[in-house]
Structures are given as structure tokens and as C-alpha cells.
Amino acid sequence: GKRLNIQLKKGTEGLGFSITSRDVTIGGSAPIYVKNILPRGAAIQDGRLKAGDRLIEVNGVDLVGKSQEEVVSLLRSTKMEGTVSLLVFRQED
């Protein structure tokens, strides 16, 4: 696979993607993946982020050990017109 650095500018329609966690172990944390890209928002305008990408970092914060809720609040904490920096891991087909 490969790592991608993606910067998304948060506009009025938001970042435009949803996340999910897979393989949750009890008391553990699961990897966070991009669930889908919404028809409006920064992600589809940028065009690089894809469903199935694994989020590794948000704005330089390592997501290991973070819950899905914590990751959502990290993403939401970005101000309007601010930039969210994502490091994602993509499995090659």
C-alpha cells in the first residue's frame, strides 16, 4: 500500500466524508476508515480521498488508540475555511 498526504479546505459544505471503524476489539481501538465520500464537500472537490482509505493522522495527531468519536471531534474542530491535513494509507488493488 501507500501513504498519501491530503489537505482539505473546510468550506460551507464541510469536509464531505464519513468514517467508520472496523474490527473493534473490546477495550481496544480499531483502525478508522473512510466510509464514503459525500456528493458535496471538500473531499469530492479535491478528488483524492477514497472510500476504504485508512486514516492514520489528522492534523499531525496520530489516531492510534483514538475512538471513532474522538476522530470525529478532531475533524470537526477545524475552523471554517481552515485546512485539515490527513495522512491516509491506501491498500493497492
Rank of each mutant, 00 (worst) to 15 (best):
residue 47 G to K: 02
residue 50 K to I: 05
residue 82 G to Y: 05
residue 56 I to R: 02
residue 84 V to D: 03
residue 74 L to F: 06
residue 52 G to C: 00
residue 5 N to R: 12
residue 8 L to W: 02
residue 72 V to D: 14
residue 15 L to C: 03
residue 66 K to Y: 07
residue 23 D to P: 13
residue 76 R to A: 15
residue 76 R to E: 10
residue 36 N to E: 15
residue 73 S to F: 11
residue 67 S to G: 10
residue 37 I to N: 03
residue 9 K to G: 03
residue 36 N to D: 15
residue 27 G to D: 15
residue 25 T to D: 14
residue 13 E to W: 07
residue 69 E to D: 12
residue 29 S to P: 11
residue 42 A to Y: 03
residue 7 Q to P: 06
residue 33 Y to N: 02
residue 58 V to T: 02
residue 55 L to E: 03
residue 14 G to V: 03
residue 57 E to V: 04
residue 11 G to E: 07
residue 53 D to I: 00
residue 50 K to C: 06
residue 41 G to T: 02
residue 29 S to C: 13
residue 81 E to R: 09
residue 82 G to K: 15
residue 43 A to R: 00
residue 77 S to A: 14
residue 18 S to P: 01
residue 7 Q to M: 15
residue 71 V to Y: 01
residue 77 S to E: 15
residue 70 E to N: 05
residue 85 S to Y: 08
residue 83 T to S: 11
residue 85 S to A: 08
residue 15 L to M: 05
residue 39 P to E: 08
residue 66 K to G: 03
residue 37 I to W: 00
residue 35 K to Y: 06
residue 21 S to G: 06
residue 37 I to R: 00
residue 30 A to Y: 08
residue 59 N to Q: 05
residue 70 E to C: 06
residue 14 G to K: 03
residue 8 L to V: 05
residue 24 V to K: 06
residue 68 Q to S: 10
residue 70 E to S: 10
residue 28 G to C: 06
residue 48 R to F: 03
residue 75 L to F: 11
residue 44 I to E: 14
residue 84 V to T: 09
residue 54 R to P: 00
residue 85 S to M: 08
residue 37 I to S: 00
residue 18 S to W: 11
residue 17 F to Q: 03
residue 42 A to F: 01
residue 40 R to T: 13
residue 60 G to W: 03
residue 86 L to H: 00
residue 66 K to R: 08
residue 23 D to C: 08
residue 88 V to T: 02
residue 73 S to G: 14
residue 18 S to E: 15
residue 4 L to T: 04
residue 93 D to K: 10
residue 72 V to E: 08
residue 56 I to W: 07
residue 72 V to W: 09
residue 20 T to W: 05
residue 63 L to K: 02
residue 90 R to Y: 03
residue 69 E to V: 08
residue 81 E to F: 14
residue 85 S to W: 06
residue 76 R to H: 09
residue 22 R to M: 08
residue 54 R to E: 15
residue 15 L to G: 01
residue 4 L to K: 04
residue 85 S to N: 12
residue 12 T to C: 09
residue 90 R to V: 01
residue 62 D to M: 07
residue 2 K to H: 05
residue 84 V to M: 04
residue 64 V to Q: 11
residue 59 N to Y: 00
residue 91 Q to D: 11
residue 35 K to A: 09
residue 40 R to M: 04
residue 38 L to I: 05
residue 72 V to I: 15
residue 66 K to T: 07
residue 32 I to N: 04
residue 88 V to Q: 01
residue 67 S to D: 12
residue 87 L to S: 13
residue 93 D to E: 08
residue 55 L to A: 00
residue 46 D to R: 03
residue 59 N to W: 02
residue 28 G to T: 11
residue 41 G to C: 02
residue 52 G to F: 02
residue 75 L to A: 01
residue 25 T to V: 06
residue 23 D to V: 06
residue 88 V to N: 02
residue 32 I to Q: 01
residue 44 I to D: 07
residue 22 R to D: 13
residue 42 A to W: 03
residue 29 S to I: 10
residue 69 E to W: 06
residue 54 R to I: 07
residue 58 V to M: 09
residue 61 V to D: 06
residue 18 S to Q: 13
residue 22 R to Q: 13
residue 54 R to W: 10
residue 26 I to K: 14
residue 20 T to N: 06
residue 13 E to V: 04
residue 30 A to R: 07
residue 5 N to A: 12
residue 48 R to Q: 07
residue 81 E to W: 12
residue 11 G to R: 07
residue 30 A to Q: 04
residue 24 V to F: 12
residue 12 T to P: 14
residue 37 I to C: 02
residue 15 L to N: 00
residue 82 G to I: 04
residue 38 L to P: 02
residue 31 P to D: 12
residue 5 N to D: 13
residue 20 T to A: 11
residue 63 L to D: 01
residue 75 L to H: 00
residue 46 D to C: 02
residue 71 V to Q: 01
residue 56 I to C: 06
residue 14 G to L: 02
residue 56 I to Y: 04
residue 48 R to W: 01
residue 11 G to M: 08
residue 66 K to D: 02
residue 19 I to P: 01
residue 46 D to M: 02
residue 11 G to K: 06
residue 81 E to M: 11
residue 63 L to N: 01
residue 22 R to C: 07
residue 38 L to K: 15
residue 47 G to Y: 00
residue 4 L to M: 15
residue 44 I to G: 12
residue 60 G to Q: 04
residue 65 G to L: 04
residue 48 R to E: 04
residue 9 K to E: 07
residue 42 A to R: 03
residue 13 E to M: 09
residue 49 L to P: 00
residue 57 E to P: 02
residue 2 K to G: 07
residue 50 K to M: 14
residue 7 Q to A: 13
residue 57 E to Q: 09
residue 52 G to L: 03
residue 46 D to P: 01
residue 49 L to Q: 05
residue 40 R to S: 11
residue 55 L to T: 00
residue 67 S to W: 02
residue 34 V to I: 09
residue 59 N to T: 01
residue 86 L to C: 01
residue 75 L to G: 02
residue 41 G to D: 02
residue 33 Y to K: 05
residue 92 E to M: 11
residue 64 V to M: 08
residue 86 L to A: 01
residue 65 G to F: 07
residue 68 Q to G: 07
residue 31 P to N: 15
residue 9 K to C: 11
residue 71 V to A: 07
residue 85 S to L: 05
residue 4 L to P: 03
residue 15 L to R: 03
residue 53 D to S: 01
residue 62 D to Q: 09
residue 33 Y to G: 00
residue 23 D to T: 09
residue 87 L to Y: 12
residue 51 A to N: 04
residue 66 K to F: 13
residue 80 M to T: 12
residue 84 V to A: 06
residue 69 E to F: 09
residue 69 E to P: 07
residue 77 S to H: 10
residue 85 S to T: 14
residue 12 T to Y: 11
residue 19 I to E: 00
residue 79 K to T: 14
residue 42 A to C: 02
residue 82 G to L: 07
residue 67 S to R: 12
residue 22 R to T: 14
residue 71 V to L: 05
